[in-house]
């Protein structure tokens, strides 16, 4: 097989984690396709390769359902960044992050960075609601969205927001998210003073309107750049089996949570 056929090697791995129906797939879709569309519950995990300047970022969009919980640690292995996503209108979704998802990140890189992202901000926040990134596309899609909204939605579909822009009570405040970020650092045993500050790593986004979505991904990619560069250097020594190296490395470090 010619070398040219080789897959573009990912330089860095980013993983989206979070409870079912918080909008992980929609966030990624908004970022990569610049669109918001009706998605169905993700099965397993979906792998995407995103070009970021000269680098290849691999993004794992994982299923939030408990059914696929066992695979979480596999998706997280060797991750340089983990996006922990919750739904601002659903307190339980933040609680789930702590209960179910945080332990999955044990297999991530030791210097992995964490972002806490509250999605569906358009439902609670006028600013997010009014942030219409692509007005024309949004018009048609929101109609589509309304017509066949997932039946399994625990949260009601994004109905046309009233003038005030707020129809749903915000259940998770920014302070809750900041406090959760602090607990992540404590869980990881990281020093709060040397780690990235909570203000910088907590985001509120809307995949529907595009609010803060680019900011999230771009900030994250910029932050993992050092990790990319380091990995590039490692890769230059052995051009063929970089993935195995990374996997083996991750395996050793990881406190396996797999049952």
């Amino acid at each position: 097989m010619p070398e040219s056929s080789k897959m573009r090697k990912p330089d860095v791995k980013v993983v989206l984690l979070g409870d079912t129906n918080v909008g992980k797939t929609s966030l990624l879709h908004r970022y990569t396709e610049r669109k918001f569309k009706d998605t169905i519950s993700t099965v397993g995990g979906a792998f995407f390769l995103k070009q970021w300047g000269p680098y290849n970022v691999s993004i794992w969009d994982t299923a939030g359902r408990e059914q696929f919980h066992g695979l979480g640690s596999m998706y997280c292995r060797g991750a340089a960044a983990v996006i922990l996503t919750y739904d601002v209108t659903n307190w339980q979704s933040l609680a789930e992050l702590e209960e179910r998802f945080l332990s999955l990140t044990d297999t991530a890189n030791h210097d992995c960075i964490y972002a806490v992202v509250g999605n569906k901000a358009d439902l609670t926040d006028t600013k997010a609601y009014l942030s219409q990134e692509t007005p024309d596309a949004n018009q048609t899609e929101s109609e589509e969205h309304r017509s066949d909204v997932l039946s399994a939605c625990p949260t009601p579909p994004a109905s046309p927001v009233s003038i005030s822009g707020v129809t749903f009570p915000k259940q998770v405040t920014r302070e809750d998210a900041l406090a959760f970020y602090g607990r992540i650092l404590r869980y990881k045993g990281s020093d709060e003073r040397t780690s990235l500050p909570a203000e910088k790593m907590c985001f509120e986004t809307s995949a529907k309107t595009g609010y803060n979505v680019d900011a999230l991904f771009e900030a994250l990619f910029d932050l993992v750049l050092p990790s990319m560069l380091r990995k590039r250097n490692e890769n230059q020594q052995s051009a063929t089996v970089d993935l195995e190296v990374c996997r083996k490395g991750g395996g050793k470090r990881g406190r396996s949570t797999c049952c």
Binding site: T25, H29, E33, T39, I40, S41, T42, V43, G44, G45, A46, F47, F48, D61, A63, F68, G70, L71
Partner: peptide, 17 residues
């Protein structure tokens, strides 16, 4: 049926049990 029911498969590469 799984593939037919999951339009999500159309994007990216899926890895699932």
């Amino acid at each position: 049926n799984l593939i037919g029911a999951s339009s999500a498969f159309q994007a990216g590469e899926i890895w699932t049990p």
